[in-house]
């Protein structure tokens, strides 16, 4: 189901690259119901819902990518500092990890939005930083567990540099699935965050740029007869939250 959710979103995103007319306002077809010409009908301004949905799935792509990178870099750095280096850097990493983990994700996002505005950058930072502590925990546990494992001792004995043992054997091979899982959760978190901020009153990405969140919030605010105008973006938010929990090799 999670893979199907991810595939649907990717297909929508690919369609979004080549979809015209997502921003064209046409009062004549305002609130149009689904038909052969408009598969998901139109919103209150007559803009086609399906085309906007396709464009919306690409709008947050840079933010989702940024969140995944911030989470992966932040989580791995904090975990490695703690479990591999230890000492004062490890203690500082533990304090940073604990402080970030203590701040609820949405509270962190709201503070960032207050400072930086409802930009994709604020959402990437909020989602990336919010998911980084959990990844740091996983990385620190795994490295701590394998630090004295036989294969690591053997690799040291063969003269393989510590940097390579850390980067390849411990981080890339042993922590790879956890990193993919954490980064995926952070990427999906951007979509849920945008929907939440839009629901809270237009704090997310501003119109007319479509996102699942602002499409959903706008359709609910304006009402209208076309159920697909809010049901379709709502379903996409649900799909994104399901897809973000998907990890290769994990059923």
């Amino acid at each position: 189901m999670r893979l199907a959710a991810l595939a649907t979103l990717v297909a929508l995103a690919l369609a979004g690259v080549v979809t015209p007319g997502a921003l064209v306002v046409d009062a004549a077809r305002a609130d149009a119901l689904p038909s052969a010409q408009l598969w998901l009908g139109a919103d209150h301004l007559g803009r086609p819902v399906l085309a906007r949905l396709a464009v919306a799935s690409t709008t947050l792509f840079p933010a989702a990518l940024g969140a995944a990178l911030i989470c992966a870099l932040g989580g791995v750095s904090l975990g490695v500092l703690d479990a591999w280096f230890g000492g004062a850097p490890g203690a500082l990493a533990r304090i940073a990890r604990g402080s970030l983990a203590a701040l609820p994700r949405l509270v962190l996002a709201l503070l960032l939005v207050m400072g930086l505005g409802g930009s994709p950058l604020a959402m990437a930072l909020a989602s990336g930083l919010a998911f980084a502590p959990a990844l740091a925990d996983a990385v620190a546990d795994r490295i701590g567990e394998l630090n004295r494992a036989e294969f690591v001792v053997a690799a040291r004995g063969q003269g393989i540099p510590d940097a390579r043992i850390l980067a390849y054997h411990l981080v890339y091979v042993a922590c790879g699935p956890a990193i993919v899982r954490g980064a995926g959760a952070a990427a999906g978190g951007v979509v849920v965050l945008d929907a939440t901020l839009a629901y809270l009153g237009g704090l997310g990405v501003a119109e007319p740029t479509p996102t699942f969140g602002n499409m959903l919030a706008l359709a609910i605010t304006w009402g209208g007869d076309n159920v697909a105008a809010w049901a379709a973006p709502g379903l996409c938010v649900v799909l994104a939250s399901l897809a973000s929990a998907w990890t290769p090799g994990r059923r």
Binding site: A195, I220, V237
Partner: peptide, 14 residues
């Protein structure tokens, strides 16, 4: 439970 609070709140409230 996999649904975020915003979706449940929207469905429940509206």
């Amino acid at each position: 439970s996999a649904l975020p609070a915003v979706v449940l709140a929207l469905v429940a409230v509206h």
